[in-house]
Design a protein around this nucleic acid. Sequence first.
DNA 1: AATCATTTCCAAAGCGCTTTGGACATCTTT
DNA 2: AAAGATGTCCAAAGCGCTTTGGAAATGATT
Lengths: 345, 345
Amino acid sequence: MNLRELAQNLGLSQTTVSRALNGYPEVNEATRARVVQAAEQHNYRPNTRAKGLATGRAMAIGHVIPMSKQHEMVNPVFGDFIAGAGETYSRNGYDMVLSLVEDGQEEKTYRDLRGKGAVDGLIVHGPKSGDARIAMLDDLGVPFVVHGRASSVTTPYAWLDVNNRKAFQRATDFLLDLGHRRIALINGLEELDFASRRRAGYEEALTARGVTVNPAYLHSEEMTERYGYDTVCRLLDSDAAPTAFLVSSMITAIGVRRAIEERGLRMGRDISVITHDDALSYFKNGEDAPIFTATCSSVREAGRQAAKMLLERIAHPHLPPPNRLLEAQLVVGGSTGPAPTSRTD
Amino acid sequence: MNLRELAQNLGLSQTTVSRALNGYPEVNEATRARVVQAAEQHNYRPNTRAKGLATGRAMAIGHVIPMSKQHEMVNPVFGDFIAGAGETYSRNGYDMVLSLVEDGQEEKTYRDLRGKGAVDGLIVHGPKSGDARIAMLDDLGVPFVVHGRASSVTTPYAWLDVNNRKAFQRATDFLLDLGHRRIALINGLEELDFASRRRAGYEEALTARGVTVNPAYLHSEEMTERYGYDTVCRLLDSDAAPTAFLVSSMITAIGVRRAIEERGLRMGRDISVITHDDALSYFKNGEDAPIFTATCSSVREAGRQAAKMLLERIAHPHLPPPNRLLEAQLVVGGSTGPAPTSRTD
DNA sequence: AATCATTTCCAAAGCGCTTTGGACATCTTT
DNA sequence: AAAGATGTCCAAAGCGCTTTGGAAATGATT
């Protein structure tokens, strides 16, 4: 059933039917009711492509998900981020189109999506510190919102980010307060902006207390469970083993815990662990008694808000690009405790 | 840059330019080269909506992701499934459109997507045993492929599934061979078809050995980490605690492990655990020395294959609907061992 | 040289919608 | 009663592409 048929069916013109359905005032309320009812009865849905052609808007938002080539890994936070964003889109009649792209190929995909006219706006995922995509999208004139930031980009652009630096600074401070001095950072890939900010926060806190940053305690890789396990195994078995770990992802923290417990040690007593927790739905840290002490920030909520920002940006392209900095909560759980006193301290 | 401008630029008609770009034979190779070069130079991309209108094809596939209302949970396997499917799509010039929908609302979304003409085909996720969506999609005449099956649907339809019954039957057999008799099943929601099949396999194996199925050992819920932890805590603290657990997801198995180790027990020695492992990229079980004994089946590979099946189905709608049953590997890891002998046996 | 087949190109229709620029009643106002 | 205002509807153009049904030019055949 298309518009023409529906109009013929009703003995009206396409114009009137179209206007009736789209809420234009110049149509008799009685006719409008008749039209709406008929549309419903015939299960009529305007063809997106035709509508898009006519209006010039795609009513779709593009998400380009970077995929690590080496590990064939999709960052597990995307699921929840997209769930949040999807809520916003469907409430506003937008579709979401997804492209999974190997690391580094993202630019071409953005160009394609825009060139084809498949989307009205884009969300940029996984920004690197000096991300070239931002300048490019500005050039292209596509509305976009970055989830995260790109430190070295100075021109204003729309972003939504968690205050990663502060979160990890606070977490480090917390560990220092507990007496820890040998604190290892099990970070994500530091070419990613959020990871470098976390590291900055960590180093800042240490330096402020006069603790020198030990390069042997700095680790940066893709955040798998295995990485957490392997790294902590190596560190714990080394001389000058850390007494505390600061971990960039819940999943990696699971591996960290495994390494610790495998050695007969207990989190919170022998070794302290703080992890960042994106509040993934299937991996709740526990509301009542959190397993991990964690810097918490719901990535789903971030998705919701980023999507809302983008839709507003599409509606008002000439407003200055909005920014939003979310603060992470430092939630105390069972994985931290005072540093065990030892002669090497 | 659109076709008309490009054609004017070249001093050719739209027809010729269109044909040149789409590989039709009735155009001089010299002109074609000229056209292709100009298109490249001007960064021309045909407008999808216009192309779609003209051809009647959307060049997009719809994925409707069910989202549990109660837990606001997105099944973590979707990320990897979609990554697999996305590979196939992008190789074939298809886009992927994603809708996240609350449980039970999926039908409307399918109808919408199809009615709007936004997609050429659909992947059905998370089929329930008597899933009404299949009949509906058949009615609508949309090409679709089900990831999983719907037991009570008798009409032929296209699906790709893991042999869940057999996988869990073999896993149960394996535990029985090790001497376990008190084996608990920590299953997913059994309204989901895959979970009911896993249960069937489990029960079949027990019954074949004359072990009666103990209802207290049967658990069915959404597969969170917390669920695994809570359930196993309760079971281990009860009389007649199980000596082995059969778990439906890696994430739940993490919770199971936590409960076990918290009690000072060790997996593989005191308690045996087998889990299903979807080979999620960020949660590798370990190639060399797997932590868990597991029934393994790559959900990413499933995504790749399901997408391929769908594209073929779109190309040849009149062929009988294809089916594919993937077998899971039973991989032995460190989480299983002989049942501890005890007087209650 | 005339005819026919081939090659190479084009004008125009059509996909299903929105939107512009009226047309025609009907109702007020003077 | 004429003129304007208002309410309600419509015909047709246009969005950017594909595709049909030729037309013109070229080459091969008689």
